[in-house]
Simulated assay, not measured.
Amino acid sequence: MKTAKYIRVSTTEQSIDRQLTVNYKQYIDKCSGSIPFNERPTAIKLLNDIADKKIDALVVHSIDRLGRNAFDIQTTLNLLSTLNINVYVENIGLYSMIENKPNSIFKMITDVLSNVAEMERTSLLERQKKVF
């Protein structure tokens, strides 16, 4: 199994230390989670490597690393499922597939968490407006 880890932070000033690992090839984007996954420079490289069969499993620290838009996160997870990529989300300890079959618990929980990620972004933007 060729596993990769996708790491994203929102700004170049933020540290990626808590997401780093030495166990996998790492794909690191420093951009807003509001940018669709398939438009991020390193995510594009990751998707190309998946298409080239260089990667067959993906690790992310948390679901919000994939994005801050529920529809985009769910679209990304559906694409990865279609490509038979088993996604592991570290902070919830779940795989998207078990014995090469979709994990319905993973789908249910990541659907909820993707909406939470979007709500957090909306809340953050509202707080920023009040400060300025």
Rank of each mutant, 00 (worst) to 15 (best):
N48F: 03
D49W: 01
D49P: 00
I50M: 06
K53M: 06
K53L: 07
K54C: 04
I55W: 01
D56A: 13
A57Q: 14
A57C: 12
V59M: 04
V59A: 08
V60A: 03
V60K: 03
H61W: 07
S62W: 04
S62H: 07
I63M: 06
I63F: 02
I63N: 07
I63C: 12
D64G: 08
A70H: 11
A70N: 12
F71Y: 08
Q74P: 01
T76A: 04
L77P: 10
L77T: 11
L77Q: 09
N78H: 02
N78I: 00
L80M: 14
L80D: 13
L80E: 10
S81C: 12
L83H: 03
L83I: 01
N84C: 12
N84H: 15
I85C: 09
V87T: 15
E90C: 10
E90T: 14
E90W: 02
N91P: 06
N91H: 05
I92L: 09
G93K: 12
L94F: 04
L94Y: 05
L94H: 05
S96F: 08
I98V: 12
I98W: 03
E99S: 14
N100L: 09
N100G: 04
N100I: 02
N100M: 04
K101N: 06
I105S: 14
F106D: 01
F106N: 05
K107G: 01
M108Y: 02
M108Q: 06
I109L: 15
I109N: 06
V112W: 14
V112C: 14
L113Y: 02
L113V: 07
N115R: 14
